[in-house]
């Protein structure tokens, strides 16, 4: 009974959820994307862009990522499963490039073109990388911050991670720009909230308690930025604090509309997904693809967020 139920449970679940995948014709190009995350809105927007490209070009994609950005080994297991399906090409956003190298070599040997996306892969195997220039984007955030607080005062950074490439680039892009260009502004602290809304909220409250005269805070990703807004609201003391966020999502967009947040940097996640699949398809056809695809970034605030150019890259 155990066996029968066990298997029936497993297989009926598979049958229910996977009919589309099993029914696919064999001659269709298959491009799996192994991402750094899955459940955050940002990654869902990347997935959306990838699906859009897949529909346009008539290829089949899957999109997977580990539950959080520390699970390096889980991402490698996903990569291995993706390779087992003999894909035409592969999209990959490495959590840790070194750990993935043996599998990437295996893909290379099998003639499977690899396209890196988001923060890319430190290796010469990927034919191309579709990404945002995070350093430049964070520098833009620093410029906007300086402009809004009048070139002097104390600011803080709530970053999402101290080990990942994006975390380091955005933090350093912001901090270095302030140091280099705005002598009147002091970055009093950089704290980490793991991109978690709740933790970032607590971090923000602690920073504000320690520095009641703070002029502005930069949140380096969606979770961090929303955490900063929550923290400021919960504390209710710093009404004229300037908050600059990163990425979009409904909560962040609402905060900008309400004036709680001054503005935010947006990447183009839909574009990242779209360009990754597009480059993968080109590569399978033997066309040359550029080594770096800059998918671009914008600063948006209440004044421009409804412009078609901006609203197209914002996600809910």
């Amino acid at each position: 009974m155990f066996t029968r139920r066990f298997l029936m449970g497993a297989l009926s679940a598979v049958a229910l959820m996977g009919p589309a995948s099993v029914a696919h014709a064999a001659d269709e190009l298959y491009v799996p994307l192994v991402s750094k995350g899955f459940q955050h809105q940002f990654w869902q927007a990347v997935k959306q862009g990838a699906e859009q490209a897949a529909t346009e070009m008539g290829v089949r994609i899957t999109f997977e990522g580990p539950d959080n950005e520390t699970m390096v080994d889980r991402q490698i297991d996903m990569l291995a499963a993706a390779l087992a399906n003999k894909p035409a090409a592969l999209g990959f956003a490495a959590l840790d490039s070194q750990a993935a190298i043996p599998l990437l070599r295996q893909a290379h040997k099998a003639g499977i073109p690899v396209i890196a996306f988001d923060s890319g892969v430190d290796s010469d195997i990927p034919l191309s990388t579709a990404t945002t220039d995070n350093v430049a984007a964070a520098s833009l955030a620093a410029d906007k911050m300086a402009e809004l607080i009048g070139g002097k005062g104390k600011v803080a950074v709530v970053a999402h991670d101290q080990t990942s490439r994006t975390g380091i680039d955005r933090r350093d892009g912001f901090v270095n720009r302030i140091k280099a260009e705005y002598p009147g502004i002091e970055v009093v602290t950089v704290q980490y909230g793991q991109g978690d809304h709740l933790k970032s909220t607590e971090v923000t409250k602690a920073i504000l308690t320690a520095n009641p005269d703070l002029a502005g805070i930069f949140g380096t990703n969606e979770g961090s930025a929303i955490g900063v807004v929550n923290g400021v609201q919960e504390l209710g003391t710093a009404k004229d604090l300037v908050i600059i966020g990163y990425d979009s999502g409904k909560a962040q967009k609402d905060a900008i509309r309400n004036g709680l947040m001054a503005g935010a940097i947006t990447q183009n996640p839909v574009g990242i997904g779209y360009e990754t699949v597009k480059a993968a398809v080109m590569a399978t056809k033997g066309e040359t693809v550029p080594a770096l695809i800059d998918t671009g970034f914008y600063y948006y605030d209440a004044s421009n967020m409804d412009e078609p150019k901006i609203s197209a890259v914002l996600y809910d």
């Binding site: 066990f6 449970g9 497993a10 679940a13 598979v14 959820m17 996977g18 995948s21 099993v22 899955f38 899957t62 999109f63 997977e64 990522g65 297991d77 996903m78 291995a80 499963a81 993706a82 087992a84 399906n85």
Partner: peptide
């Protein structure tokens, strides 16, 4: 289970559900 569901391209949300059920 995890690998098999992935190879079958079952959506990731559902992979977790199946594991819990198992």
């Amino acid at each position: 289970l995890t690998n098999g569901l992935r190879v079958l391209s079952v959506a990731q949300e559902w992979q977790t559900v199946v594991t819990g059920v198992i």
